[in-house]
């Protein structure tokens, strides 16, 4: 089974920012969460995947193809949601349906109208009257309404209320039931990613810090809470990052290396991300 997304040695150089040696592998049938602070390079990576900007070096393979030939054919099978990008103001759902029927050869009108209804999108209202959340929902509906095998989502759930976010995550989980479907999603809402993702990729200042299975990450790390004195006695190689507070010290530690008599809490993905950065 080929990988849905394979990125090797990707590099992009800007004046004040360099995306360097990005390697990401997303196996088919999985959801990968893409996390990092603002400005870490998430949107840049996604733009490179979609061919919106040109890479300096490296290789990107989507659904097994390097996009040099048959570029349009691959895009039949990609559903993208890009932050802030949407349809021109005066179009409504019915117009968009008619237009996309003529762009995608695999456009599914019934599905699109179903999602428009499910997401409570007014069918005859112009896009300019949509709230930000509605525009996102519209893009998501579009992404799901043709033969997409890979969803590429850049902050697709930001700006949505928790209730609709939950509904959309359910829609994504439904999407992934088909083993040939995969999702690559960047988000700041790490709790969402924790709910649905199989893999987590963490990017920081243009470099990939880790690209691992979520379950393995959670098994690997734990949170240790102790006093400062106790902390000083611990072997530093066990500690990934730490934070001092009023009660003592909180540290991210390797679960298998820490001594058994300490109490270790489970680490959330957000904790892991925060402590990794604190270590830098």
């Amino acid at each position: 089974m080929e990988n849905a997304l394979e990125i090797k040695g990707l590099k992009k150089v800007y004046d004040r920012f360099v995306l360097d040696n990005v390697n990401i592998t997303l196996p088919q049938g999985c959801i990968m969460g893409f996390i990092g602070e603002n400005g870490a390079g998430k949107s840049t990576t996604i733009k490179l995947i979609l061919g919106l900007i040109k890479k300096n070096s490296g290789e990107i393979k989507i659904l097994g193809s390097t996009q040099n030939n048959n570029e349009e054919n691959i895009k039949e099978h990609i559903g993208a949601v890009i932050d802030e990008s949407c349809f021109p103001d005066n179009l409504c759902v019915n117009d968009i349906n008619m237009i996309l029927k003529n762009i995608y050869s695999t456009w599914e009108e019934q599905k699109f109208l179903y999602y428009a209804d499910k997401f409570s999108l007014p069918v005859k209202e112009a896009v300019k009257n949509y709230s930000r959340g509605m525009k996102m929902k519209l893009s998501i509906a579009v992404a799901l309404s043709h033969d997409s095998k890979l969803l590429i989502l850049d902050e697709a759930t930001s700006g949505l209320d928790p209730i609709i976010r939950d509904e959309i995550l359910d829609v994504f989980l439904d999407f992934i039931q088909d083993e040939t479907h995969s999702i690559f999603m960047s988000s700041h809402i790490i709790s969402d990613l924790e709910k649905v993702c199989d893999y987590i990729t963490f990017i920081h200042e243009g470099k990939i810090i880790f690209c691992e299975s979520k379950d393995e990450l959670k098994e690997k790390f734990g949170i240790l809470k102790c006093s400062e004195n106790e902390f000083l006695n611990i072997d530093k190689s066990i500690i990934k990052g730490y934070r001092k507070n009023n009660f003592g010290v909180e540290a991210l530690v390797y679960k298998d290396k820490i001594k058994k008599d300490y109490t270790i809490d489970n680490a959330s993905i957000e904790d892991i991300m925060l402590y990794y950065i604190k270590e830098q």
Binding site: K47, L50, G51, L52, E71, E72, N73, K75, E76, I78, A80, I82, E84, S85, C86, F87, P88, D89, N90, L100, I103, Y104, S105, V127, S139, I152
Partner: peptide, 21 residues
Amino acid sequence: TTLSYDEKAKWDKYVLSMPVS
């Protein structure tokens, strides 16, 4: 005018994720 609408909606970015060259 259509180009201006496109620019406002950042349409070019979006449309290039579709099977359109």
